[in-house]
Amino acid sequence: MENWKDEILSSMKGAERSEVPAGAFRKIEQQIKLQKQKQVTPLRWLAVAACVTAIVGGNLFFILNYDQTTATSISNDSYSVLISDFNIYSNE
């Protein structure tokens, strides 16, 4: 009585395996290659870290020395004015 349903349920028995598409493995290899290219190696990390340290260090050095430079230049300017003033008076 249930024959037709059992026939349908067992219709895949003895079916052959269908073939894997020919280019599938090549696509996988390409994906792996791409993945490897994107991967950041420890050496590259080291180079990036060195660059960041150099930039940050350079900026810090500039900021820390900026005040001293401006202070020196201001004091030099006032001194030169004094000298020139003195010269003007001495000529008269």
Binding site: L9, M12, S18
Partner: peptide
């Protein structure tokens, strides 16, 4: 229709 199914079972496999 599964590519590997036997010809006589194709209709049943389609229903499955």
């Amino acid at each position: 229709i599964h590519p590997g199914v036997k010809l006589e079972n194709q209709e049943n496999a389609r229903i499955l």
